[in-house]
Structures are given as structure tokens and as C-alpha cells.
């Protein structure tokens, strides 16, 4: 894995210098990793879109990669941020859509994704669902979420961490 990461880092440095062949290799390998990453964390319909989003983000932000540092954490940070952002948007759509209502303007997959997120959150412990909803989906800080839920700040962190891990397991078990 470390060797693989070094190779990806070298490919990115070459891509930053305008080498198209290296860049294609990099994107193909990044695509494989991103596909695994998002399939484990998102409903199936959203995973392919998320991969495309992440590839475009990697493309746009490739100048921010520092060749002296490992590539994996750089790509992982971008992928994770876009995942959380997508979860937030899905949550907002879920809140905006009245039950059984289809305005005709919202594409069907988005409504399905929103329903999936609501269904997945409902399967978590209430404290974990609250922590994820406030911190990851609505963007409150750990301290603000602690004040709103009555949980301590360390407990919020633990509930977010455990809740996300459980969400991943739920998505994976739902697929298998």
C-alpha cells in the first residue's frame, strides 16, 4: 500500500508537470479506489456521481498536492469531505420533500437517496443519529452539538465516529 501510494504521488507530480499519460494512469487508479470508497458509504445510485465529483475535484485541486507528502491522505481528505457534503445535501433534500410528494422538479434518484439517508439514520442509536445529523449534516461544531443535545463534547465525537462506522456497515450489509 505504501509503495502504491508512493507511485500515485510520483504520477501526480508528473501530472502537475503536464504529463498526460501519467495523469490518465493516476485517474484510473484513483477511480478504482474512489469507487470502493463510495460504494461502501453511499447508496448505489449516488456512488457513481460521487466518484465523478471526486475526480473533478482532484483535477481542479491538483495544484494543492505537495509532492513531498503521501498521496493517499490528500486524496482521502478530498473524498471524505465530498462524501460528508453529499450526505448533507441528501439530508437537506430529505427535509425539504414532504412525504409522498413529488414536485416533478426533483430528479427521482435524489429523492431515493434522501429517503435512504433518513432510513439509515433511523437505524442508528438516537444519540449517534443526533450527533451525525448536527455535526456532519447540519455543520454545527462539536461544542454547539454538545450544547444542543446535552451530550459532552467527547461523547459527541465518539457518537459521530461510531455512528459513521455503523452507517458504513449498514450500507454494505444492505448491498450484500
Amino acid at each position: 500500500m505504501r509503495r502504491d501510494e508512493r507511485e500515485l504521488g510520483v504520477l501526480m507530480v508528473l501530472a502537475q508537470q503536464g504529463d498526460a499519460v501519467s495523469y490518465r494512469l493516476l485517474l484510473e487508479r484513483a477511480r478504482a479506489w474512489l469507487t470502493r470508497y463510495y460504494r461502501a458509504r453511499l447508496p448505489a445510485a449516488a456512488a457513481e456521481d460521487a466518484v465523478q465529483d471526486a475526480l473533478v475535484a482532484i483535477h481542479n485541486k491538483r495544484a494543492t498536492y505537495d509532492g513531498l507528502r503521501p498521496f493517499g491522505p490528500w486524496m482521502g481528505a478530498i473524498a471524505r469531505f465530498l462524501w460528508i457534503d453529499r450526505l448533507r445535501r441528501m439530508e437537506r433534500r430529505a427535509e425539504g420533500a414532504a412525504p409522498g410528494e413529488d414536485s416533478g422538479f426533483e430528479p427521482r434518484p435524489a429523492l431515493d437517496d434522501a429517503a435512504d439517508i433518513a432510513r439509515l439514520l433511523a437505524q442508528l442509536k438516537p444519540a449517534q443519529a443526533d450527533a451525525i445529523r448536527l455535526v456532519k449534516l447540519q455543520g454545527y461544531s462539536i461544542e454547539e452539538a454538545a450544547g444542543m443535545t446535552g451530550q459532552s463534547a467527547p461523547l459527541i465525537k465518539v457518537n459521530v465516529h461510531r455512528g459513521l462506522a455503523r452507517l458504513m456497515r449498514l450500507v454494505q450489509s444492505g448491498r450484500s
Partner: peptide, 14 residues
Amino acid sequence: LIDALVVDASGRMQ
């Protein structure tokens, strides 16, 4: 998409 991104990046220094 990958084809398009490679075309967009080729020959461009960051």
C-alpha cells in the same frame, strides 16, 4: 470524464 480531464490537463504546468 477521465478522457476529458486528461485532455484538459495535458501540457499544462500547475
